[in-house]
């Protein structure tokens, strides 16, 4: 994408910091990069409608979502800790809110053999795959990943990144693109995923651009601060 599809603006206190953001997002995969407690997750919660401060606005594809509750936004949110429904099976979780056949998704994410397994029997990586598959099954207009790959083995992270890129290509060729906004403080993940990087610290965007430029800027800042 070249045209901005998302405009988010916020000037509100969150915890001990103030989140001051006014950004237009245009990339297929935008990475919010920065240390813990810098406001990245709050920004995702703002977009998902889970945090609704007074002085904030969200425009997605020209539609003002600011006053809409989370269930009317078509924005899927995958938290760092997978919030899977413990009373449902893997299949039941992925089917919750699904607007597309779920069997191909279970296959894609390697969950077909676990379809009828209980949630408490899953490993951390399996649970996170269920969480991401469940989010994609709702056919959202935007996918938010809040440190969703944290704690996963490198191979699994790479595998999931490839799967998500393939899904993005399929959605784009079907005329309903699926942009992704992900939060991380992992440099390797930033390089692997990002089309566009926003470096956030203390609630402000300090730098923006491709991964190489933004991380080089961070390195320069670090050295000048020594």
């Amino acid at each position: 994408m070249t045209q901005p599809f998302l405009h988010v603006r916020c000037d509100a206190p969150v915890g001990t910091l103030r989140l001051c953001i006014d950004e237009r997002i245009h990339a297929d995969w935008t990475v919010l990069f920065g240390p813990s407690g810098s406001g990245k997750s709050s920004l995702l919660r703002l977009l998902a409608g889970l945090w609704r401060p007074r002085d904030a606005s969200v425009l997605l594809h020209g539609q003002d979502l600011t006053l809409l509750p989370p269930h009317r936004r078509s924005i899927a949110f995958v938290a760092q800790t997978p919030s899977l429904f413990p009373h449902l099976t893997v299949r039941g979780n992925v089917a919750f809110g699904a607007r597309t056949p779920i069997d191909p998704l279970l296959e894609t994410f390697g969950l077909a053999s676990l379809a009828y397994a209980g949630i408490r029997t899953l490993s951390g990586g399996e649970a996170q795959r269920v969480s991401i598959a469940r989010a994609i099954a709702t056919e959202p207009h935007l996918l938010l990943l809040d440190e969703s790959f944290t704690g996963m083995h490198r191979n699994l992270r790479r595998q999931l990144t490839v799967i998500l890129r393939q899904i993005q290509q399929q959605r784009a060729s079907a005329g309903s693109p699926l942009p992704i906004l992900s939060v991380t403080h992992d440099v390797a993940e930033t390089f692997a995923c990002a089309d566009d990087v926003l470096r956030i610290e203390d609630g402000h965007v300090l730098a923006r651009g491709n991964a190489t430029a933004v991380l080089a800027q961070e390195r320069a800042d670090l050295i000048s601060g020594l």
Partner: peptide, 15 residues
């Protein structure tokens, strides 16, 4: 009930 589960349900389109 864990409020994160209710938030997850909301972002999956459940009113």
């Amino acid at each position: 009930v864990d409020p994160r589960l209710l938030e997850a349900a909301a972002t999956l389109g459940a009113g």
